[in-house]
Design a protein around this nucleic acid. Sequence first.
DNA 1: ATGGCCGCGCGTCGCGGA
Length: 280
Amino acid sequence: MSMIRVATWNVNSLKVRLPHLLQWLKLCDENQQSIDIIGLQELKITDDKFPTKELEQAGFYSLPLGQKTYNGVALLVRKSSLAQLHQDPETAFLQVQKNIPNFIDEQQRLIVSTIHLKETPPIRIICGYFPNGQSPESDKFAYKIRWLTALKKYLATQLQQYPRLLLMGDFNIAPEDQDVHDPKAWVGQNLVSPEERAFFSQFQELGLVDSFRLFDQEPKSFSWWDYRMMGFRRNAGMRIDHVMVSQELKERCTSCKVDKVPRKWEQPSDHAPVILSFTK
DNA sequence: ATGGCCGCGCGTCGCGGA
């Protein structure tokens, strides 16, 4: 009954948050809740500045896709969790895809790879930093819709190919009103619009499951809190970071949790990590 | 009370974030 743990975390600048990331990974280890695979978003650094060495010293291989100032995503995998034949930076990440195929994009928002962990079939991991969308009238929203449309198409083909598929990241979509601290105040805004939520439903129709809702959760569970207005202290947040899994993985899930601990630290990211556990 | 906080860049304010 050996466990795999996958986490997603929007770190809001890896340069600033590397100490938190390392601290958090260590804390998980100490609690016997070691993370095997991590998807990061909002790196805000180019690949030449990615802390490959520090993360390798912490026991992880990295697959970054960064850019200056904005966006940027990465996958990390624990070296010791990899199948023997893949315990090498060259073979840790297989069948890598950077950004959505056939979708021309300046913004670095999607990283995909197949990962072979010990004693379990390979897992297809998709890590995304979905566009924010600003407001439904904006050009940025139109871009978000185009991005989501392209992603949906890609997911459909990936699900045909990979029975063990996991899609995680900062979706910038609160799927339901229970994922919003004050649904009335958010009516008509991005993150909650019917158009964005329809994409989330369509991902579910493709066979992906919101793993968080497979389990009992505290009411008002969120993954992001605004820095302003004492958002975290008032628990005025949103649940916009998600881990979706294919049917074959769904059967194996044992828990999905938001870890609010690092949100309480000094100079935190505005997002908390979400951790999914499933059996091998 | 419609703001308030962060991180970034050729920067000392404006933009983007959600």
